[in-house]
Amino acid sequence: MSKNRIPAVESMFTMDFENPQLVGGRSKITGSYYFPKDLSGSDPRGKGSEDREEVFLSTVGTIWSYTTASYPPALPYQIIEPFEPFVISAVELEKENIVICGQMMPGIEVRDIDVGTKVKLALDVLYEDEENEYIVWKWDLL
């Protein structure tokens, strides 16, 4: 029996595996973007997070920079044993002028990417328990 797929965090992305989208905010006053919608730096010209409407962010961007987690990260990261090192990228979205981090999809290595490489949003399993798979966004090669 297959496990339930549950988002690892509520309200930050859609659970559409074919065409996932990040859910951000856009200021009705300045037109600027926020991700996560209510958990980022705040523009004094806006009214805190009150003036933000929910928007879907671009699903394709370019790598701003990248690195590896060559050792297991600390809790609350949930490690799937045995630990496999992974790549993290910070990806620039051209329309929104924002950089958003995420793991690269499994199997992608540092030698496969560079600053400027185009990538697209994907969903993958972050960790699992007996009943559920907990899903998060990652970046994938275009």
């Binding site: 920079s65 990260p73 949930q78 981090c101 998060v136």
Partner: peptide, 15 residues
């Protein structure tokens, strides 16, 4: 940042 992607402090330094 830890929970969703294992983004520890050294990862920022690496980037």
């Amino acid at each position: 940042r830890f929970r969703l992607m294992g983004l520890s402090n050294p990862a920022y330094f690496g980037m």
